[in-house]
């Protein structure tokens, strides 16, 4: 059974049709990329899956649960994690708290226990601290646990965002342009990291990326969007030579 199924999903902003007739099927363990020029509607697809916008048409099913109509926090609690194209960390909070906050739906105590620091409070807080520090250690951020997030250099902020997304123990991870602003060396590291977390956390990953090196290097399937419409979908080899894709990226191809 598919992990995520999007069927005939469409979304309009006022009169502008940002996404139309979007279909997607992700299976457990997939690593797939969505590519396309700026304004193609890629980020909008992420926002529709995670509940930021409500799809005006179609349905999105995650493990048999309909996502359209649910709040973002309900969808996140179903273990769909994401990062953002423009980094959206909790800037004034510590690195550790950024990761701890994303555990919210997994912490089991009542407001009263929280108010009195009694009952399950201690056990749960310690569990979350341990797990958060483990995640920070994986991303080599542990020594920065007490640092304010906004003081981190750009590259580390991007890493922290992935760590935070992993804190909701996602089954499906959505990465919005994870390599943006990185140099080739950093992109290599990122590619290794993505493959490693995919193995380690048994993730299904859907990512948006402009860096062809990353897309062609690690993704098994690619979906191409342009003006909200799907141009093509298939393995990297096929996409590379697809005439419609070349046209969208390079402009009109002369006859012959």
């Amino acid at each position: 059974m598919a992990l995520l199924t999007a069927a005939k999903v469409g979304h309009q902003f006022g009169g502008l049709c940002a996404v139309a007739d979007f279909n997607l099927e992700l299976h457990h363990g997939d690593l797939m990329a969505v590519i396309g020029p700026n304004g193609a509607g890629k980020t909008t697809v992420f926002n529709l899956i995670t509940g930021v916008y409500r799809a005006t048409e179609g349905s999105i099913c995650f493990k048999g649960t309909e996502l359209v109509g649910k709040n973002p926090n309900q969808i996140a609690a179903l273990h769909i994690g994401r990062t953002f194209q423009n980094i959206r960390l909790f800037r004034d909070l510590s690195v550790l708290d950024n990761v701890r906050i994303a555990h919210h739906a997994q912490i089991n105590y009542t407001p009263l226990e929280g108010l009195l620091h009694l009952g399950r409070y201690r056990r749960e807080e310690q569990r979350i601290i341990d797990n958060s520090r483990l995640l920070l250690a994986i991303f080599k951020l542990e020594h920065l646990a007490g640092e304010t997030a906004k003081n981190l250099p750009y590259g580390l902020q991007r890493r922290l965002e992935i760590a935070r997304a992993l804190a909701i123990s996602p089954e499906l991870l959505l990465l919005d342009e994870p390599a943006a602003g990185m140099n080739p060396n950093e992109i290599d590291q990122l590619m290794a990291l993505i493959q490693w977390i995919r193995q380690e956390f048994k993730l299904t990953i859907l990512l948006i990326e402009h860096q062809m090196k990353l897309v062609m290097g690690i993704c098994e399937r690619i979906k191409v969007l342009d003006f909200g419409v799907t141009l093509a979908e298939g393995p990297p080899k096929m996409i590379q030579n697809h005439p419609k894709v070349l046209e969208a990226y390079l402009g009109e191809i002369p006859d012959g």
Partner: peptide, 20 residues
Amino acid sequence: SKYGRGVLSIREDEIASDLM
């Protein structure tokens, strides 16, 4: 507590907080 951290995250970025 988790609620207090939630309050802080709402101040920082409510949509990101919801998505987390």
